[in-house]
Simulated scan of single mutants.
Amino acid sequence: MTWIAALPMYDVTPALAAEWRAWLADVLRMVKPACRIVEPDEELHGFWRRPNLLISQTCGYPLMHGLREQVQLIATPRFDAPGCEGAHYSSVLVTRADAQFDTLANCRGARAAYNQDDSNSGMNVFRHAVAPLARDGAFFSAVIRTGSHLGSLRAVAEHRADVAAIDCVTFAFVCDEMPELARQVRRIGMTAAAPGLPLIAADTVPQATIEALREALNEALTTQPERAKRLRLQGFSALPLTDYERIEQLENEARAVGYTRLA
């Protein structure tokens, strides 16, 4: 079997995507499997379930909604970004730089943007933050799905939406790589924290290979410290799957007060 690998989650710009690809290539050279780095040619839910997936990165929400039965956790990155603490991360609540909103509570009746229905950082923690403020299951005047965190930021910057929740790691990369976009928005709060986006492998990958990957992840950081700094990588933690139950807890807390979806 020829293994495949891809890191599709934090490729905010082409230059950053190239950095991730070079780092992944170094990791694979250390493990020495027969593996190809690929661009996913299908929607990610199908790609993550490929039986020959050696390493990729997923979001904790799909992990806890069916994916966990078909993959195993390798490690969770620890990022140097505002809103990160160890292997946990939050989302940044943003509005336009010139908007009147100073807090999420002030956004009642505003327009919200989010990336995907199955995103922890763009939807789930956003829903959790809004839930105590909602009345009869509603808070916003309109909600739009943009398809990506960059899409949500642009929707806010271009006056198509007023507020969004952006993965704090993505937002840090936007500040690094796209400062002109970052200057068009303003932070008005942070969401609750949850375990970060984990690196995963198919359940067919041998345990010895998983251990080799864990060693290579950290070794690839020390051999190229400047690249690690650009990628904001500090290291990796091997979190148990039970830590990701935090994501379900946030979902259940919002549902318990009758706020089942962003509205």
Rank of each mutant, 00 (worst) to 15 (best):
L44G: 01
A208N: 15
G258N: 04
I4T: 08
H149K: 13
A142C: 05
R78M: 05
V27F: 00
R186E: 04
P179Y: 07
A110T: 08
M30V: 03
R135T: 02
Q184R: 11
L150R: 01
Q70L: 08
V169G: 14
D162Y: 09
A172M: 10
S90K: 01
F79Y: 14
V257S: 03
Q57G: 05
F139S: 03
Y61Q: 06
I144L: 13
Q70K: 12
A105Q: 06
Y244F: 15
D117R: 14
E43N: 15
F236R: 05
A220H: 04
D176C: 02
R227W: 05
A228H: 06
R227Q: 06
A193E: 11
I210A: 02
R50K: 00
E251K: 11
L221D: 01
A202I: 01
C107K: 09
V169T: 12
A165V: 08
A34N: 07
A97T: 12
C107V: 03
D167F: 12
I55T: 05
S91I: 12
L250Y: 02
R230H: 07
C107N: 08
C175L: 15
F126E: 06
T260E: 14
V143G: 11
R261N: 13
V205W: 15
V257R: 07
Q72A: 01
A131S: 13
G258D: 03
R29A: 15
L53D: 05
T191E: 11
F173A: 05
E19D: 15
L239C: 08
W48S: 09
P77A: 07
D117K: 12
